[in-house]
Design a protein around this nucleic acid. Structure first.
Lengths: 341, 341
DNA sequence: GACTGTTTTCGAAACGTTTCCAAACATAGT
DNA sequence: ACTATGTTTGGAAACGTTTCGAAAACAGTC
């Protein structure tokens, strides 16, 4: 019993089965209007009979586009990224693109691999959050990127479209709010200053104190990683040693870590400690009561990025990159109280 | 000033620049050992000089595999899916595959599109959660799927590898536990019985009552959707009308909805109501205190699926499909109390 | 029925690789 | 110097489409 070699049926098989040329089959598929109805049915029945499906590898090879776009992200476990991706997907799908997502785990080499993978024709465009803003290899790759791309909340010295969040203003407002409630020992835990959100948040934090001519509690600033573990570690340290009266957990994973500490120490919010978070996550909305937070419209970020990409996808000419900055807003929850007199 | 037509440099350009044949260039790239060191450097400098990068479209067209695998999921906003994907990615990357994710939003047509997209050579294999277990079109597509695939927690009458969770036993244990605490009016909110998890959970729930010869509170079973909104709606209804003494929120999105109700009605857990959740999410672990839950090892599910896929990817012969079922375990938190006498 | 103009079809080239076969070359053994 | 053996290389075919120019078929008009 010989093993069937399962060579899938090609357009040529269809052509000979239908008694037409391959060109005609191709046109029946891609421009049915250009073929006589009678031949169309011949071709269609042949296709049906043979169960023919065009090989998209070959199609991609010929037509120079794939109608897919890539979404590159460092950690899809972060619900923000998931939401952004969904918003991007909704817009792109409407325009006939299939979006797919690549998770890099933050490693520079994985980011490089992801970019390379998309680089050559695997996608028509990319939307991405790159963690290694400073990594030379990554920068070089981005520079040579020959497909349209949009950067999310990252700031690199290259001519690439970007959608940014105005973290500085947001953080400045939140900090001011706490200062207004009488807090001075305010701690800030956020991501590393090597990427934009960290930098900007620190800037806003500092600014809020400066505006009122108060001394900036630089000893209470912890900015290294956006992970839950980091949040846990730093919150533990801070509470043990520095006794802040308020903590700003700037990063939704960080919030998880901070809440873990709060729970362990059985602290009451806002009785023992005022707390401000970033972004509406399930946790921020539900933890005993809603937490006061610096919110932003994640869907809008995604949609904006998608539109930026579509624009670039549409026109081949190299117009200069756009960077669009979107605002945040402070949503008051129940997690902040005046500092006891 | 004429617009440079930007035809990217091909292997042929490199060949003539280096004064060798295209075949040699190709081999320099793919099997450097088979080419004389002297020619190798000629080729390499030419590649460097021209900034040549092989067109992966063409490569994919020739070699018949892409070294990528697809991960298809209905809602990447669900942290479980994200975790699974990360576990899958870790394993697959180790073996040289690039995994990417496609989000279908649950729509049958999107699922179909995703499968089609992968179907022809866009990926060497797929791991997926299909929502339309009963959708004829989807089933047919799966049946004709010509690439190795693994199903997650779904049960369809086709010969496809699958990794399942033993929801029935898990639910039976949880329900028994509540019964043991004296609860009788136990509500179950979970996904539709049209997909496996819903079916199995109901089965386990019912089983627990039957075992003790108790009447099954069928009026308290709500099984239609895994969404947060559904959880919210049904929990509201149940609490208003049926006054259960315990609720099992089986589905992490459902839990979000249920907690919203609990918060709104200022219910105390477990004082006013006992609560059991599924899967360790941030919320389940942190909401005021840890919630008692039916847990499972998500990473292991991902890893298992990845290994199953690798196995199939490795051997071309059609061995019968495997289905591997993984257990759950009950983790006691602080959200259940004996029913007041 | 010849002429024109339009629609439809054919056949071949092209896309950029990889891979196969045979030719060229080098190395060593006699 | 010649053959036998092994290593490198060149050239062309192949992968399965799309597309393009030219040929063929058709329809309408005089």
């Amino acid at each position: 019993m010989k093993k069937a070699t399962r060579r899938s049926t090609t357009i040529r098989d269809v052509a000979s089965a239908a008694g037409v040329s391959v060109g005609t089959v191709s046109r029946s598929l891609n421009a049915p209007d250009s073929v006589r109805p009678a031949t169309l049915v011949k071709v269609r029945t042949a296709i049906e009979a043979l169960g023919f499906q065009p090989d998209s590898r070959a199609q991609i090879m010929r037509r120079r586009h794939t109608m897919t776009i890539g979404f590159v992200v460092d950690d899809i476990g972060n619900p923000l990224h998931a939401t952004t991706f969904k918003a991007v997907s909704a817009v792109m799908r409407e325009r006939g693109f299939s979006p797919y997502l690549v998770n890099t785990e933050g490693g520079a080499e994985n980011e490089a691999a992801a970019i390379d993978m998309l680089q050559h024709g695997r996608a028509d465009g990319v939307i991405m959050t790159i963690n290694s803003e400073k990594d030379a290899g990554t920068l070089k790759r981005l520079e040579q990127l020959r497909i349209p791309s949009v950067l999310l909340d990252r700031d690199i010295p290259l001519d690439i479209d970007a959608v940014l969040t105005d973290h500085a203003v947001g953080m400045q407002q939140a900090t001011s709010y706490l200062i207004g409630l009488g807090h001075r020992r305010i701690a800030l835990i956020t991501g590393g200053s090597d990427i934009r959100p960290g930098r900007e948040r620190i800037r806003g934090f500092v600014e809020a104190f400066r505006q009122r001519d108060l001394e900036v509690p630089t000893d209470l600033i912890r900015a290294q990683s956006l992970s839950a573990d980091y949040g846990f570690r730093e919150a533990s340290n801070l509470l043990q040693r520095e006794k802040p009266t308020a903590i700003i957990a700037a990063g939704n994973r960080i919030l998880v870590g901070v809440l873990r500490v709060i729970q362990q120490n059985k602290l009451s919010i806002p009785g023992d400690l005022s707390l401000i978070a970033c972004d509406q996550t399930d946790l921020a909305l539900l933890y005993p009561g809603p937490i006061t937070l610096i919110d932003r419209n994640i869907e809008e970020i995604g949609r904006t990025a998608a539109h930026l990409l579509l624009e670039r996808l549409g026109s081949a000419d190299d117009k200069p990159a756009q960077r669009i900055s979107l605002p945040t807003r402070l949503i008051l929850g129940g997690s902040c109280a005046p500092v006891p007199a």
